[in-house]
């Protein structure tokens, strides 16, 4: 049997390369934009920081999508599916590797922010001085920040997990359906699966707001952090349920692309 680490390395390889390519492109975009600003004579110490801020949403968005594509490809490619590893383990490793890549991308973004801040350090420092931060909020903000980071990461995982769910369920269904109608039926199956997924997530969303409302009424003061964690918990449950079905599909029905 192939070890956890080896499988991780294997499924991670192309995702990691794409993340690095993305980062190189981002840095290139920041440099080009900064130079362009300078050419127009509008360069200030803040330019690098604002440019970096401006571009940062693009790699985040594109990164999640690129990871999702690689994430699905390993399920139907013989190069990966012939690896002697149990499906649950394989599925978990793939999801963890996607998570690791988005964390990597986020950490690099943070690095880019910090470096770009150094360019306009004086302005930023004086701006910070002008802002009066009440000390009592600070601990609360830290917890809130952490919760939001966890929420965003779990949200990414729900995104990938749901894409896998749609992919693997349609892939399973298509092995049963007659070929001559497969095109039409595939679309119908897609529609049904997407509809059900939206429906279920809607129900979950309602559940979350109901729970938080109850808490809101009970507690008196609105507990943001508490509500965040309930949402996180519910999303983890979704990831687990979808994961169980996905693994079942992988074990029983999903086939790799034929030669």
């Amino acid at each position: 049997m192939t070890s956890f680490g080896a499988v991780f390395k294997a499924v991670n390889r192309l995702k990691f390369r794409q993340m690095n390519l993305l980062i190189v492109l981002e840095l290139l975009a920041i440099v080009v934009t900064t130079i362009w600003t300078a050419i127009r004579g509008e360069y200030s110490n803040m330019t690098v920081f604002t440019t970096a801020m401006g571009w940062s949403t693009v790699p985040a968005f594109v990164g999640v999508i690129l990871i999702a594509i690689r994430h699905e490809k390993v399920y139907t490619a013989d190069s990966y599916r012939l690896i002697p590893v149990e499906e649950t383990k394989f599925y978990t490793i793939n999801l963890l590797s996607s998570l690791a890549n988005i964390v990597y991308l986020a950490v690099v973004q943070l690095g880019i922010y910090i470096i770009s801040m150094l360019f306009g350090w004086q302005e930023l420092a004086s701006m910070a001085k002008d802002m009066t931060t009440p000390t009592h909020i600070e601990s609360g903000w830290l917890l809130m920040g952490l919760s939001i980071i966890v929420l965003v990461l779990v949200l990414n995982m729900v995104f990938w997990s749901t894409i896998s769910f749609v992919h693997l369920v349609t892939s399973s269904a298509s092995t049963f359906l007659p070929k001559f109608r497969q095109g039409v039926l595939n679309i119908i199956v897609y529609a049904i699966v997407v509809f059900l997924t939206l429906r279920v997530s809607g129900l979950i969303g309602n559940g979350v707001s109901w729970i938080s409302q109850t808490m809101f009424n009970n507690g008196g003061s609105f507990d943001w952090v508490g509500q965040l964690w309930i949402t996180i918990f519910v999303m983890i449950v979704v990831i687990l349920i979808e994961g169980a079905i996905n693994v079942l599909c992988l074990k029983r029905w999903v086939e790799t692309d034929a030669n």
């Binding site: 192309l14 390993v74 013989d78 190069s79 990966y80 012939l82 030669n259």
Partner: peptide, 10 residues
């Protein structure tokens, strides 16, 4: 060991 067609690689 199966002669897979290396579809998983770019």
């Amino acid at each position: 060991s199966f002669s897979e067609q290396l579809r998983g690689f770019n």
